[in-house]
Design a binder for these strands. Structure first.
Lengths: 218, 218
DNA sequence: GTCTATAGGACGATAGAC
DNA sequence: GTCTATCGTCCTATAGAC
C-alpha cells in the first residue's frame, strides 16, 4: 500500500474534500436552524435543539460553529447576501433607472416574503444579545448603494427629481419597502407576494415615491 | 382596640385598600419588566430576573401574574391602550378630517418612539410563544376603526378620495406609519421624534398618502 | 470529528410552611 | 402574600477519550 497522501505532499484533493464536506455540514446545520426558528420563533433557536435535529450530541456542533451567536451571524450574513443577490438579479432584468429600482425591490421583496424567518432576523432585532458583525452587515450597505446608484440613473434620465437619491429620498424609499415587509411579516405571513394585503401594494408604493419626487420641469 | 373591621360587615375600605395595593405592585412589576426588556431585549424577560429586580423570591411573583406570558399579555394590553389613548388625544386636538388623521398618527408615533420596548412588543413578534389574547388585542382594532372613521370624515369634506378609507387605503396608511416606526426602531432608536431620520418624514408621508388618494373632482 | 461526561447554571412553576 | 425548598427541565460550553 503506497503512502496515502499524507505529509508535505499530501495533495490537493484530500483537504478539499474535507473542506467541502465541512461546508456541506455547515449548510445543513443552517438549514435546520431555519426550520427550528420557523417552529419556535427566531429567538427560540438553541444549540441543543439544533443537535437533536441533526441527531448528534451538542458538543459536536461546536466543531462547526464556535457559539450560538455565530450561527445567527452566519444566517444573517448569508441572508443579506441572498437578499442582495435577489436585488441585483431583479435590477439586471430591467431597464436602468426607475424600472431597475422597482424590479430590484420587487425581487428583494419576493425573496423576503419567501424567507420570512431570515427576513425577521435581517430587518428586526428579535434575538436578545445578537448583533451582526460588520462583515455580516456589509451586504446591507451594498443594497443601499445599488439603489442609490439606480436612483441617480433615474434622475439623470429625467424620471425623478435628483432629490430622490438624497438621504431623505432613500429614507422614504426604505420606509415604504420595509413598511410593506414589516406589515406583511407581522400580520400577513402565509400570504404569498401576489396575494398579500401589503405586498400587493408594491407597485402603488413605487408610484407614490415617484410622485413625491417628480422630475424637475425642463 | 375595637374590632378592626373584619367579619361580614368588614366595610368597603379594607378590600379596596388591598386591591389598590395589589394594583400598585402589579404596576411596579410591569415597570421593572420594561426596564429589564430595555437591557436584555424584548424576549429576554424572565421571571427570575424580574424577582431579582423586585428583591423578592420568584414564587411571590406568581401571586400577581400566573405566568411569564401573562406578564407579556398585560404589557401588550396596556401598551395598546396607551397607544390608542395617544391617538385619541391627538385627534381631539385637531379639526375633523385629515388634520385629525395626521395629528392622531403623530401622537401615536410619538408615544411609540418614547416607548420603544413596548412598541416592539406591539408591532413585531419578538417573543417566541407569545400571542396576545383577544382582550389585549382589542384596542388595536379600535385604532383602525378610529382612523377609518376620520378618513371617512376627510372624504366627506372633500379632502381625500373615498377610497382612502377602503381596506386598501388603510393598508397603505398603516404601511407608511409602521414602516416609519419599524425603520426607527430597527435603525434609529435613540433619536427623538423631531430629529429621527425616519420620524421626521411624518408630514411628508401623510402628504404622499393624500396625493395617492386625491379628492374626486366636483 | 464523534462521542461521554459533566460543569455550572438559569429557568418556569409548584408545594407547603408561616 | 411572603418565604424555603424543590422539581424537572433546559441550556451553553468545555474536557478529554477514542
Amino acid at each position: 500500500m503506497p503512502e496515502s497522501g499524507r505529509g508535505p505532499g499530501q495533495g490537493t484533493r484530500g483537504p478539499d474534500r474535507r473542506a467541502r464536506r465541512r461546508e456541506e455540514t455547515r449548510a445543513q446545520i443552517l438549514d435546520l436552524a431555519v426550520a427550528i426558528m420557523t417552529d419556535e420563533g427566531v429567538a427560540g433557536l438553541s444549540m441543543a435543539s439544533l443537535a437533536r435535529a441533526l441527531s448528534i450530541q451538542p458538543p459536536s456542533l461546536y466543531k462547526y460553529f464556535p457559539s450560538r451567536m455565530a450561527v445567527y451571524d452566519e444566517l444573517f450574513r448569508q441572508g443579506q447576501l441572498a437578499n442582495l443577490e435577489a436585488l441585483r438579479s431583479g435590477m439586471r432584468g430591467a431597464a436602468p433607472g426607475m424600472d431597475a429600482v422597482a424590479a430590484g425591490m420587487e425581487a428583494a421583496g419576493r425573496w423576503a416574503v419567501s424567507h420570512p424567518v431570515l427576513a425577521q432576523l435581517l430587518f428586526w432585532r428579535p434575538v436578545p444579545g445578537f448583533q451582526p458583525t460588520a462583515d455580516a452587515f456589509a451586504p446591507a450597505l451594498e443594497i443601499v448603494d445599488q439603489l442609490r446608484r439606480a436612483l441617480r440613473d433615474a434622475a439623470a434620465a429625467g424620471q425623478v427629481h435628483p432629490d430622490a437619491a438624497s438621504d431623505q429620498g432613500m429614507a422614504v424609499l426604505s420606509t415604504l419597502h420595509f413598511g410593506m415587509l414589516s406589515q406583511h411579516l407581522a400580520n400577513d405571513v402565509g400570504s404569498d407576494w401576489d396575494h398579500g394585503r401589503y405586498t400587493r401594494l408594491h407597485h402603488q408604493l413605487i408610484a407614490m415615491f415617484v410622485s413625491a419626487y417628480p422630475p424637475a420641469a425642463r
